[in-house]
Computed example of a mutant assay.
Amino acid sequence: MTDMTTDNEFCTFRLDHLTFGIEVHQVQEVIRPQALTAVPRSNPVVQGLINLRGQIVTAIDLRRRLELPERPEGQEAMNVVVRTPEGEVSFLVDEIGDVVHVDEHSFETPPDTVEGVARELITGAYKLDDRLLLILDVQRTVQLPTAA
């Protein structure tokens, strides 16, 4: 039986007009825009590789992964570096938010407004005072579909 008073902590970030969250324990660090090295013939959602203190980390453009509009010209992407069983991966996001505490009782299924591939990658949502926090499934997000 789980403790009914449990609160969950999420690192939040924005993409387009949406607010997403990743469980804090899955986030290694949040860093400013980094130089990217292109990866020829890679999946289109792979923006490139970043050198993180000597460690090579794949950078996934979450706008492309979630089939959102492209990032506006001149807007640099921030990096949310997440831990996965296969190693670290950087998610490129528009803007970093705060770490928020949410009551697990306010968890809901993904709203009907979330469509397409995003629906498969979001485990649910929390209603915050001024917005909806969409919870991203890190493991599913890093598993890129193979090109047909």
Score class of each variant (00 low, 15 high):
129 D>L: 10
138 V>I: 10
136 L>P: 01
116 G>F: 02
83 R>S: 10
68 L>S: 08
13 F>H: 07
75 Q>D: 13
137 D>Q: 02
140 R>E: 10
127 K>T: 14
90 S>G: 10
10 F>Q: 02
123 T>V: 11
32 R>G: 12
55 Q>C: 09
79 N>Q: 12
45 V>M: 03
37 T>H: 09
86 E>Q: 14
147 A>M: 13
22 I>R: 01
112 D>L: 12
5 T>N: 14
21 G>T: 03
87 G>E: 03
102 V>K: 01
14 R>L: 12
87 G>D: 04
141 T>V: 04
21 G>I: 05
44 P>A: 04
121 L>F: 07
75 Q>K: 15
4 M>L: 15
76 E>W: 07
110 P>I: 06
46 V>K: 01
55 Q>N: 12
60 I>T: 00
26 Q>C: 12
97 G>R: 02
57 V>L: 02
40 P>H: 05
37 T>V: 13
60 I>D: 00
116 G>N: 08
39 V>G: 09
96 I>V: 15
4 M>H: 13
80 V>R: 00
142 V>I: 13
27 V>A: 08
144 L>Q: 02
13 F>Y: 09
137 D>M: 01
138 V>R: 06
24 V>Y: 09
7 D>R: 12
5 T>A: 13
118 A>M: 10
56 I>Y: 04
57 V>P: 00
126 Y>F: 15
78 M>R: 11
26 Q>N: 14
37 T>C: 09
80 V>A: 08
137 D>R: 03
106 S>N: 10
27 V>S: 00
84 T>M: 09
45 V>S: 11
39 V>N: 07
66 L>G: 00
133 L>H: 07
58 T>C: 04
59 A>P: 03
36 L>V: 11
75 Q>V: 15
112 D>V: 08
104 E>C: 08
142 V>Q: 08
59 A>G: 04
51 N>Q: 11
82 V>Q: 04
107 F>V: 07
16 D>K: 11
89 V>L: 06
74 G>W: 13
24 V>P: 06
15 L>W: 03
63 R>H: 14
27 V>R: 00
29 E>L: 09
127 K>C: 08
65 R>G: 04
79 N>T: 07
18 L>D: 13
10 F>S: 03
144 L>G: 07
93 V>G: 01
129 D>V: 10
59 A>I: 02
137 D>G: 05
113 T>W: 14
126 Y>K: 03
12 T>R: 03
72 P>L: 08
131 R>M: 08
137 D>Y: 02
3 D>C: 10
138 V>W: 02
11 C>P: 03
115 E>M: 15
18 L>G: 01
101 H>I: 08
32 R>L: 11
41 R>N: 13
114 V>E: 02
111 P>T: 01
99 V>E: 11
81 V>A: 07
52 L>H: 11
141 T>L: 07
63 R>P: 02
88 E>Y: 12
105 H>K: 12
139 Q>I: 10
128 L>V: 06
98 D>R: 15
51 N>I: 01
67 E>F: 04
